[in-house]
Amino acid sequence: MLRALMGLLLLAALMPRPAPADAAAPRFVTVPGGQLVSSLLDGTRTVTVQMAPFAMLEEPVTEAQFAAFLRAHPEWQRGHIAVLFAGPNYLASWLTPTDPGDAQAARRPVTDVSWFAARAYCDSLQAELPSWYQWEYAAAASSSNRDARANMARRNAILAALMHVTGQRPGLIGQRPANVYGLRDLNRLIWEWVSDYGAMFPDVNGDVGSAGSGSVLRLCGGAALAFRDPSDYALAERVAALSMLAPADSSPFVGFRCVRKPGDSP
């Protein structure tokens, strides 16, 4: 009996150890449909979008969740990933290709991932990156209001939070209340990849420039005109940050979350 117990203990000791910070299962929450008046203009026209309901990850994808994805999909690990999909900065600060080396990995949003890798992660959940409109619609909500974008105090606080983190590692998820949909950390922690970010920046001819060209900055005056409210600096900064990136680039301030059809389990 004792011997059997010892055997079991030995077996347990030899079992693969769990990742340093266990990844919580990603949780989707349903965002009801509604109307979005986008902050981005189409030329000089205001765009009103009828949003269908969708399910969105409650929080940005964490380092621990991304590490679990990398263990299951080695082709997306640093060192294995094709250069077409990720530059040299891809997860460069991680201790190993599958270990962020961060005691807070379960609560820290993953950043330094390319748009391709973010897409692949979402695909592994039978989900996808949100469109800009989906992200904008979800992020417009505060903890008490579905569209809090006009609230100047909130707007200034978002800008201040973004300024505060610039140059540092992103903070931890869940330090602030969720918004009315139950979503957290859309505005103040990081910038997030969206599926159609490359088509958000039409050039002067109305064509779409290529992603990563920073065309929104080159055409600074024109870019300012492309926002419905040019004084929403936090939003302009977010759009400008994304426009600087090619899809294979990664940034310490850009993470992501995923969306899928509402009602898909779990």
Binding site: D42, F116, W132, D196, G198, A199, M200, V208, S210
Partner: peptide
């Protein structure tokens, strides 16, 4: 495929796409 080619598109609310 669009990502590696540098082709981007965004459906427009009135139908059609903004694309390069």
């Amino acid at each position: 495929l669009g990502g590696v080619l540098g082709v981007s598109w965004r459906p427009l609310p009135g139908g059609g796409f903004q694309h390069n």
